[in-house]
Amino acid sequence: MTAVRSSTFDGRRFLARVGARLLGAVFVLWAVATVTFFAIRLIPGDPAQAYLGGPGSQASQEALERVRVEFGLDQPLLIQYLAQLGRLLRGDLGVSASQRTPVAQILGEQLSNTLVLAGASLLVAWILALALAVWSTRGGRVSAAIGSGIELLAASLPQFWLATVLISLFSTSLGWLPPVSTGDASGLILPVLTLAIPVAGFLAQVMREPLLDAQSAPFAVSAAARGETRTGLLLRHGLRHASVPAVNLSGWAFGYLISGAVVVETIFARPGLGRTLLQAVTVRDVPLVTGVVLCSAAAYVVVMLGADAAAAILDPRDRQRRASA
């Protein structure tokens, strides 16, 4: 009977936690849609011009007036906002004002490019961070000092400057890699490095201290007493302990990579959500801007939930705290 009660209790807590996360995700998406709606209207200009070719279209007042009436832009701002929320609740992202194409279709065409870029960048950032953290903690004081400096330098590099340096070195000087996207793996290397290096600096910073602490922790001392090698301690215990804060940070890192795609995709002429967003903001394409931002926010929420679950799996103490809460 006790086991049944405990199982039921845990199930209720799990459902409550999932429900709270889903409500939080809905709130985030609503907040993003609201901020985007009002922010895009703070940009000087008439949003009706987006339907007629953009700010430089020199459309007549009669044409602008027809567009305002057709798309409800002549209504009070609050009415426009409520109408947009209603469409979003029905799953209708609308039609791009500048491309005259359903926003969902544009997102479907561009989303995979940005997800590949962000996912590959996060993977490379983890590899670089793990290598740097392990080297700086196992090489003595000199390696620790050098590693700390590299982490700080990498984390502080601006993306546009780093992209320029990488293009100058590997494309212009050495001729090893193309300076723009070519649609194959070679055209992905420089954009990935541009996004991954700063993130690797942040991840290595949060890994290094837990990795040092793990080497002197009771579980490490006990494992060493049982004959575990130094490499075994690192691989079986140290990295798992050090990866927990980095996994928690990975959700933020993915959001950083998605936002950084605006700069990187523009510099490397790579198709994706970032480049699409920049073009949409330039012409005040409200439906497309809203769709891209909501899609990015949804991807961020999903990755945050995944990172939270992964951290709970990696850290048994976290599961115990959640169970006793």
Rank of each mutant, 00 (worst) to 15 (best):
L211H: 06
L195N: 07
I189R: 02
V180D: 04
I189H: 03
S186Y: 03
D184F: 14
P198M: 02
G187H: 06
W176Y: 04
A185L: 15
S181I: 01
T182Q: 14
A204G: 10
M207L: 14
Q205F: 03
E209P: 01
P179I: 01
L177I: 01
A185I: 13
A204I: 00
G201C: 10
M207T: 04
Q205P: 05
T182N: 14
L195F: 07
V180Q: 10
D184Y: 12
A200D: 05
S181H: 12
A196H: 11
L193T: 10
L188Y: 12
L203A: 14
T182H: 10
G175S: 07
G175K: 05
I189C: 03
P178I: 09
L188V: 02
R208E: 08
G183C: 08
D184N: 15
L211C: 09
G183E: 05
S181Y: 12
A196F: 10
P210Y: 14
V180S: 13
I189P: 06
G187T: 00
A196G: 10
S186N: 07
L203V: 14
I189S: 03
S181N: 14
I197F: 12
V199G: 03
I189M: 04
A200G: 08
V199S: 06
T194Q: 06
V180C: 03
T194K: 08
I197Q: 13
L193I: 08
P191Y: 04
T194R: 05
L190G: 02
A204D: 07
G201V: 07
L195V: 13
L193S: 03
D184L: 11
A196I: 09
P178M: 04
P179N: 02
M207I: 01
P179G: 03
P210D: 13
T182I: 08
G201R: 08
L190N: 02
T194S: 07
F202N: 15
P198I: 01
P198D: 01
P178V: 12
A196Y: 11
S181V: 00
D184R: 15
A200I: 04
T194V: 05
V206S: 14
A200Y: 03
T194E: 02
D184G: 15
R208C: 09
L193C: 00
V180F: 04
S186C: 00
T182S: 15
A196S: 15
A185C: 07
L188S: 14
G187E: 09
P210H: 12
D184W: 14
A196N: 09
A196L: 10
A200K: 04
P210L: 11
D184C: 15
V206Q: 13
L203Q: 14
Q205S: 13
V192H: 00
V180P: 00
F202K: 13
V192A: 01
V180M: 09
I189E: 00
Q205T: 09
L211K: 09
V192I: 09
M207R: 09
T182V: 11
G183P: 04
V199I: 15
V206M: 15
P179Q: 02
V206T: 15
G187N: 06
T182L: 08
L193W: 02
W176N: 05
V199A: 11
Q205C: 05
W176K: 05
P210A: 12
V192S: 00
P191R: 03
G175M: 06
L193A: 04
L188F: 11
G187L: 05
V206P: 12
P178R: 06
V206C: 14
P179Y: 02
L193N: 00
Q205K: 13
S181D: 11
